Measured scan of single mutants.
Amino acid sequence: MAAGGDHGSPDSYRSPLASRYASPEMCFVFSDRYKFRTWRQLWLWLAEAEQTLGLPITDEQIQEMKSNLENIDFKMAAEEEKRLRHDVMAHVHTFGHCCPKAAGIIHLGATSCYVGDNTDLIILRNALDLLLPKLARVISRLADFAKERASLPTLGFTHFQPAQLTTVGKRCCLWIQDLCMDLQNLKRVRDDLRFRGVKGTTGTQASFLQLFEGDDHKVEQLDKMVTEKAGFKRAFIITGQTYTRKVDIEVLSVLASLGASVHKICTDIRLLANLKEMEEPFEKQQIGSSAMPYKRNPMRSERCCSLARHLMTLVMDPLQTASVQWFERTLDDSANRRICLAEAFLTADTILNTLQNISEGLVVYPKVIERRIRQELPFMATENIIMAMVKAGGSRQDCHEKIRVLSQQAASVVKQEGGDNDLIERIQVDAYFSPIHSQLDHLLDPSSFTGRASQQVQRFLEEEVYPLLKPYESVMKVKAELCL
């Protein structure tokens, strides 16, 4: 049975990233139509530049190519590739079939990587351009969430054990800070992308030097003109047959890092959902379990974690691919890159769409948070109580021993009897502590235990987050809708 299948058929496997999760716009960027249309555009740009620099290419040939950029006979191309065992030459023939007058000058002087690699770089750039505003929107939604809850005390956790208090907004800023680093890295790697350009079979530009009869300047002009037509500021000066596969490492490393950030955020949300302090959106008709109707599973956060793990592992592909590119190139890269580049971007696209949807509907339960604080705060307040007693004339050592005994009794009630923490009640009825009984409410005010959390939130948002989001103001209103 021949390899390949009808990918629109229910009898043929289709990647869930495309069929179930990723956005239509990201799927289109990695589609065959987008790819092969870009090949034709690159052939047109090459012909236009070659004509401008004096090669015998007519206006009629150029116009014929322009008129057929979208006229792609995919069936013919597939048949040609089956016959020739070469995808680029299959599309040269297919393009030439609908451009008979231009057929002889299509791909003039070029090698397969002229269309293959340059198209990949265009796709990487455009895919990054799709991700950047999506990530900015996630940051914006979380920034709104953090600002609104900047002063809401909550129990902090280290080692997932109760620690000092923080605020809900401050905790959210930990998430935002990681995503801001990801946004900066995505922008950097996007701006650092260079075009492969017009380089020939081993990167020496020998074929173009021959076409222009040894004119170095025209060869350099050709490279520059096509690079500018493709919208790049610069091209690699040095290439082998391909652009260095280190570029793929750079791009997928940034995406993998984004995956790590999203995994951490969504894990926190899942843990908070278990504590009943916070939940992701839950639709009115949504079913959490087929057997347990009360369940409210954090399905979206779980999906993000599941896909983020996949995204983090994909960076190993370009690392290994770059390491086995012998001399000017081997074909070890080809099949692998067809999979890992598309999957990385479709996965990143999915987790950003999902995280935006989550961040637009996060639900906080202040009463649950308050109750958990009441359970733990008495123990945390013991040092403040000791200091207040010393100020009232008591002995630190005597007070410490009193607190120690009462704390152990209260802990026994919590752990052995399943009761509430009654340390404060014990202190309130103990005559030894009568000098500070009137101060206990103040000493137990949760806001006095959150330090500068709310001020940190305000400063972080104003100095770091809002300036970073400013270039994306025009796209901030787009909502994230999930079908599944």
Rank of each mutant, 00 (worst) to 15 (best):
Y294P: 13
Q161L: 10
S359V: 02
E481D: 10
G54S: 02
I57F: 12
P56G: 11
G203Y: 14
M312T: 12
D178P: 00
S301L: 02
R303E: 12
A411C: 05
R374A: 02
L84Q: 11
G116E: 04
H91C: 07
T321A: 04
D268W: 01
Q397N: 09
A127C: 09
P56K: 03
F379K: 11
I122K: 10
T52G: 04
L406F: 05
I139E: 02
S19P: 00
D11V: 08
I424F: 11
Q458V: 13
L42I: 10
Y243R: 10
H107A: 01
Q286D: 06
L352D: 13
I123G: 02
L331I: 00
V254F: 11
V475G: 09
M299D: 06
L131T: 03
P100C: 08
G96V: 05
N353Q: 12
Q455C: 00
M225T: 00
H159P: 04
F28E: 07
W39T: 11
N68W: 10
Y114P: 04
G8M: 15
R37I: 10
I424Q: 02
K264R: 10
Y472A: 10
S334R: 06
D59C: 13
E50I: 03
P10H: 14
N126S: 11
M89C: 02
P100I: 12
I237Y: 15
K391R: 15
K147H: 06
A335T: 08
L135G: 14
C266S: 14
L307E: 14
M225Y: 15
L44V: 09
T382V: 09
Q221E: 13
D32C: 06
L186T: 13
C266V: 04
N336Q: 03
T58R: 08
K284A: 06
L124T: 15
L211Q: 00
A127D: 00
G200I: 00
L183F: 09
E60S: 09
L271H: 02
D11N: 15
L272N: 08
I123W: 07
M387S: 09
Q51E: 05
P10G: 09
A150S: 02
A235F: 14
L42P: 02
T350Q: 03
T267K: 02
V315L: 03
V414Q: 00
E79C: 05
Q164G: 03
K187S: 11
A453V: 02
H107Q: 04
A78C: 00
S261K: 07
V88S: 14
